[in-house]
């Protein structure tokens, strides 16, 4: 079998803001990770731990002050590298993305990325409709002004705008912040669907351990700019003590299992999905 190559790899990435001023701050400090096609990676970390700074390196929006970043094996900061087309292949959804809408209609706004790619009108229209479907935007909204939508709908339009470029990697910075539970669920399932149907890698920054537990396969834990852990979800949430030490937590369900364990029950605390745990508890009762 062929060895699978990473699609994106960061090597000893360092980013210092404000070099040479009294405000100098190293926000990302020696992070190395390999991201493979079809990965779904969750990124967690306390406020100010450097998550946003790190992910903005991945599509070349900020230049690292140290280390290298490779996309399909090529250093993206080498001379003559086409950063613009990299950005179509590594899609980035910023925090509060609804603040960047600007077109007259939702349809045009979602089509902004594809238009910049130089696609034909039919291709653009096809992609816009497909992306709207992923993001759960009803057809009838497409002709409306994005400024007339609700906050949650705007957020979906912004996410669809990235999906319409059909990136091979999609990076989302807290896409569900400030939404109601239903809105969160819809956005996350839209992302999952995109991940599965397009075989795209996903990198999801979130403060919700539940969202990470339910969606991601691997988790990056950032702490003061350093990569504290990078492991499959189970292995990360098994280390509840360390997570709590650095201001994070485990999903509630894992918390319950840990408490059960403390009480002397023999449970596997690495479970994190509600269904698995429900089954386990039912099973224990029937014994």
């Amino acid at each position: 079998m062929d060895e699978i190559k990473p699609i994106l790899s960061a090597e000893n990435l360092v980013h210092t803001y404000g070099v040479g001023t009294p405000f100098e701050k190293t926000a990302v400090d020696g992070v190395s990770v390999d991201i493979f096609p079809n990965d779904y990676i969750g990124v967690i970390g306390h406020t100010g731990s450097g998550k946003s700074t790190f992910i903005q390196h991945l599509n070349g929006l900020i230049k690292p002050t140290g280390g290298t970043l490779r996309f399909q094996g090529e250093d993206i900061w080498q001379k003559g590298y086409d950063l613009k087309s990299l950005r179509f292949r590594v899609g980035m959804v910023f925090q509060y993305p609804e603040h960047q809408l600007f077109e007259e209609t939702v349809e045009k706004d979602i089509g902004f990325g594809p238009k910049n790619m130089g696609l034909s009108a039919e291709e653009i229209s096809e992609r816009v409709h497909a992306a709207a479907e992923f993001a759960g935007i009803p057809e009838k909204l497409l002709s409306k002004s994005p400024f007339d939508l609700s906050g949650g709908q705007k957020r979906r339009v912004a996410i669809a705008g990235i999906m319409a470029m059909r990136p091979e990697i999609i990076i989302l910075d807290e896409p569900t912040a400030g939404l109601d539970p239903k809105g969160r669920e819809e956005i996350l399932s839209g992302i999952k669907e995109y991940h599965e149907r397009e075989h795209a890698a996903v990198i999801l920054v979130s403060h919700s351990m539940e969202d990470i537990a339910r969606n991601a396969q691997k988790v990056m834990v950032m702490h003061r700019g350093k990569l504290e852990m990078f492991a499959p979800v189970r292995d990360v949430f098994r280390r509840a003590d360390r997570l709590r030490e650095i201001g994070l937590d485990v999903p509630q369900i894992t918390g319950i299992l840990l408490r059960l364990k403390e009480q002397g029950y023999d449970v596997d605390s690495s479970l994190y999905s509600v269904d698995e745990v429900a089954e386990l508890i039912l099973h224990m009762r029937n014994k």
Partner: peptide, 10 residues
Amino acid sequence: KIISAQKARG
């Protein structure tokens, strides 16, 4: 931020 976001869309 807005410049970055629009750059991300090409």
